[in-house]
Design a protein around this nucleic acid. Sequence first.
DNA 1: GTTGAGCGTT
Length: 278
Amino acid sequence: MAEVYIRVAEEENEEPMEIPSEDDGTILLSTVAAQFPGACGLRFRSPVSQCMRGVRLVEGILHAPENGWGNNVYVVNYPKDNKRKMDEIDASSAVKMKRGDMKTSDLIVLGLPWKTSEQDLKDYFSTFGEVIMVQIKRDAKTGNSKGFGFVRFTEYDAQEKVVTQRHMIDGRWCDCKLPNSKQGPDEPLRSRKVFVGRCTEDMTTDDLRQFFMQYGDVTDVFIPKPFRAFAFVTFADDQVIAFLTSHLFVLISTGFSNACIVKCDDHLKMHECLWCVA
DNA sequence: GTTGAGCGTT
């Protein structure tokens, strides 16, 4: 099946927007969410039964109805499609909006090629924003790179962009993260991670990411193996946590009926928790 | 002169 565009709208009678499918004819939920933030699925009115039908969604992938996407107008589903819910999403957007004055912190850069220099790093990251520090960690004797380093931006926007994607640097994929080891005059570490309880065994990291991305940028999803009925979701922004913990009812009453935030804590506590339960 | 998950000599 070739790539097609399907018509998607917020409501049945509204001006639809065309959204591209993948090469195999499926549509990624993330593609829909890029245009309709918070979207968790699609529905359409069956030409035959005149009833609304849900589009099959498996692990973030929307599958075409039996006779293909056709000329139907697909309507966006939001978690627990009601007004209160939309207000909550707006509130989360508000959380994201007022991060302009957030302080930046050093980011660890993992997976660097051995040959990459400080200048290489600076050149690469300067495309995201003003860089105020780069470091490559080297062996004290030989001067050889240890394959990781640090970078710091002046603007928080640049930092957030950088931690939410992978980076091709000198031919290798590298990851940028908030360092685990706290060092330097950073703000007191506030939690960016939530503990998600009552998980079911069929829930995937994609499922959790798709659900929680409506509240903020998700940088990591961890599901222990073997199955232990919980997961961790990490956000780029710690303010999301404050929002989520003050709106527990949102999670319990919407979308993932099986997911709820049980508690939030700092990194170390989380770590202890992970291992002591094991 | 090697390596490839991790966590920062000053």
